[in-house]
C-alpha cells in the first residue's frame, strides 16, 4: 500500500466520478467481506409484510366473528364475582399472590423481574456466554446445586409447588447436561445451553405454568378445579 496516490483534478463530477477518502493508517475500519445475498426491499420484503398484516387481520377477524369479547353485567361494587380473575396476563401474578404475602408477590417479584430483564444486555455473563459446562469446576457444580436446593426450599416453605417443581426439574436438567459434550445428541443439545438461557428458561416455564394454572385451574375462592369441571360464578 505504499504506491503514491494519483490525484486527478476536475470540476466536472460527471466526467470524473471518483470519490476520494483519506484516512490514517491505524484507523481503518475492519471491513469484513461478505457473500450475503441482498434483495430489493420492494417487493420482496414489502409484499411479505403486507401478507403478514393481512393474515393477522384475517386471524383476528375470524376470532372477532366467532368469539364475542366478554361483557358481564354492569359493575356492582357490592357484589364480588367469585372467582374475581384479572386478565390472563396478570393471572400468573394473581396466582403468586395466592402463595406469598402481597408485598412479595405484588411488588418485590414483579420489580425483580423487570430489573432482571432490563439489566440482561449489560451483564457480562449474558454477553460472553458459552455453554454452561464449557468450563467446569467443582465450585460451579456445588454452587449450582446449592442455589437450586436453596430456591426449592425457599419456595417450598411457602408450599409454592408450581415454582418448586420446575426449579427441581431444570436443576436436574442442568446437571444432566454436565459432561454431555460427547454424549447423545439430546444431551449434547442440553450441554450447549448457556447459563443465562437456563435462567430465562426457568423463569419462562414458571411464568407460563403459573399463568396456565391461574387461567384454567382456579375456581371459586381460588380453589383448585379441573378445567372440565363446571363451576358457577
Amino acid at each position: 500500500m505504499s504506491a503514491p496516490i494519483e490525484l486527478i483534478e476536475s470540476n466536472d463530477p460527471v466526467a470524473v466520478p471518483w470519490r476520494v477518502a483519506l484516512m490514517r493508517r491505524d484507523s481503518r475500519p475492519a471491513v469484513r467481506e461478505s457473500d450475503e445475498k441482498y434483495v430489493m426491499t420492494f417487493p420482496h420484503l414489502i409484499v411479505r409484510e403486507i401478507i403478514m398484516f393481512q393474515l393477522v387481520v384475517i386471524g383476528l377477524s375470524l376470532a372477532a366473528i366467532f368469539f364475542d369479547a366478554p361483557l358481564e353485567s354492569i359493575a356492582n361494587p357490592v357484589e364480588t364475582p367469585n372467582p374475581a380473575k384479572a386478565p390472563w396476563y396478570f393471572l400468573g401474578l394473581q396466582e403468586l399472590l395466592h402463595y406469598f404475602p402481597p408485598v412479595v408477590a405484588g411488588v418485590l417479584m414483579p420489580a425483580l423481574v423487570v430489573i432482571g430483564l432490563v439489566v440482561i444486555p449489560y451483564a457480562r455473563v449474558n454477553l460472553e456466554a458459552g455453554p454452561l459446562w464449557a468450563t467446569h469446576s467443582r465450585g460451579k457444580l456445588a454452587s449450582l446445586t446449592l442455589v437450586v436446593l436453596a430456591l426449592s426450599l425457599l419456595f417450598g416453605a411457602f408450599s409454592c409447588w408450581p415454582i418448586v417443581i420446575p426449579t427441581l426439574i431444570i436443576g436436574a436438567a442442568m446437571l444432566a447436561a454436565r459432561n454431555g459434550e460427547q454424549a447423545s445428541p439430546w444431551r449434547r443439545a442440553l450441554w450447549r445451553v448457556t447459563l443465562p438461557e437456563w435462567i430465562m428458561t426457568w423463569f419462562v416455564v414458571i411464568a407460563a405454568l403459573l399463568t396456565i394454572i391461574g387461567v384454567f385451574f382456579r375456581g371459586p375462592g381460588w380453589s383448585w378445579v379441573w378445567p372440565w369441571e363446571q363451576f358457577r360464578a
Partner: peptide, 9 residues
C-alpha cells in the same frame, strides 16, 4: 367497559 370483570380486575 365498566362491567363486573372490569371493575374487579
Amino acid at each position: 367497559p365498566w362491567d363486573q370483570l372490569a371493575f374487579w380486575g
